[in-house]
Design a protein around this nucleic acid. Structure first.
Lengths: 123, 123
DNA sequence: CGGCATCCTCGATGATACTG
DNA sequence: CAGTATCATCGAGGATGCCG
């Protein structure tokens, strides 16, 4: 990235530059806000889950997409992955500290939307 | 949606049901976390902007996508749109109360990610 | 300037089958 | 169970051009 760490500059006039350009943060944001990323992260907030638990948890996701999404999130350092070499194999996923950091505003976002939509007059 | 307002239930064991199924909230979440939605919302947090200002603000976005994203956000009640019938025409966009509600955790999310990535040992 | 319609491309996503 | 590989598709998104 070019600018570096220009986060939290909310001064009027000087708008964000980060998300305009090629920034590593943008990739992570893209992963987090990807079609399935947000649901994976929220799913893992309460407790760690195994692969098939995640798959059943997030209805509509295919194994491929789940694996792909998890791979990206693991690579970004948001999710950890623990393999137990039993038979059958057992792989557990959970949130890293970073993942929890990110999951918080994500859940907040989700909550605010659902709350708003469940309100009578809102719309 | 079926369950209604089961938000903020973070009890282990009972996972979210909302985002698994067909829920109006899911649509809004999809719009907000769409490729461009998040940047539009964050862009508008500090102040309202005109169409072309937004376009220049969010590098890489096409007019089509900007218009489309804005339309969705306006329809969801996150963004308002004001047309001034001057010549040339002048259209301004800004966040509604709902939009500000949503923009907050969104910015928080963004900030946490950039902060993390700008930290030395993280990664 | 704002924005819609059209065409077209490409990548994300899904279905299926196979491996360890 | 937990993936990976391959193939087919569908729609998001970009380019262009036209209109008020």
């Amino acid at each position: 990235m070019t600018g570096g760490s220009q986060h939290r500059q909310a001064e009027a006039g000087k708008r964000y530059d980060v998300f305009h350009t090629d920034c590593l943060a943008r990739d992570v944001v893209d992963h987090v806000t990807s079609r399935w990323g947000i649901w994976v992260l929220i799913s893992l907030r309460s407790n760690s889950l195994r692969f098939y638990e995640l798959r059943e948890s997030i209805q509509g996701i295919s194994e491929k997409m789940l694996a792909q999404t998890l791979r990206a999130l693991v690579q970004d350092g948001l999710v950890w992955r623990k393999v137990e070499p039993t038979t059958p194999p057992q792989v557990t996923y959970g949130l890293t500290e970073f993942g929890q950091d990110v999951g918080e505003p994500l859940t907040e976002l989700f909550d605010r939307i659902t709350e708003r939509l469940s309100r009578p007059g809102a719309g």
